[in-house]
Amino acid sequence: MKLKGWKELPIGGVVTEPGNSREVETGTWRIARPIVNPEKCTDCLICWVFCPDDSIPSNGKIRFETELYHCKGCGICAVECPYKAIEMVQEADVILEELKLIDKK
């Protein structure tokens, strides 16, 4: 992200775009990643209610995939899930696993 110069900033340092924290990558703070077991998940959306970072997108009916750019890996979703459908897995292990898959291809 290129830092803005003084002439480019709005007067008073006001925030002109609502919800701009969306631009801040907080996914790198995560040391554990929530992995959803689709067989157990019932789309009850309890996790959507509890997620403090709004990282679980939904259309009101279906739980979409966790938004990893923002998910800090707090694990609240895994604790609150009534169906124990979410498991917290070490982030490093997930990345390394993904790398192995890419290498195989």
Partner: peptide, 18 residues
């Protein structure tokens, strides 16, 4: 330890900005 994992994932390129 995750710094090395991110480095590995970057394949010699840039790390995430944060």
């Amino acid at each position: 330890p995750s710094v090395m994992v991110y480095l590995a994932a970057s394949r010699g390129g840039k790390l995430p900005e944060s």
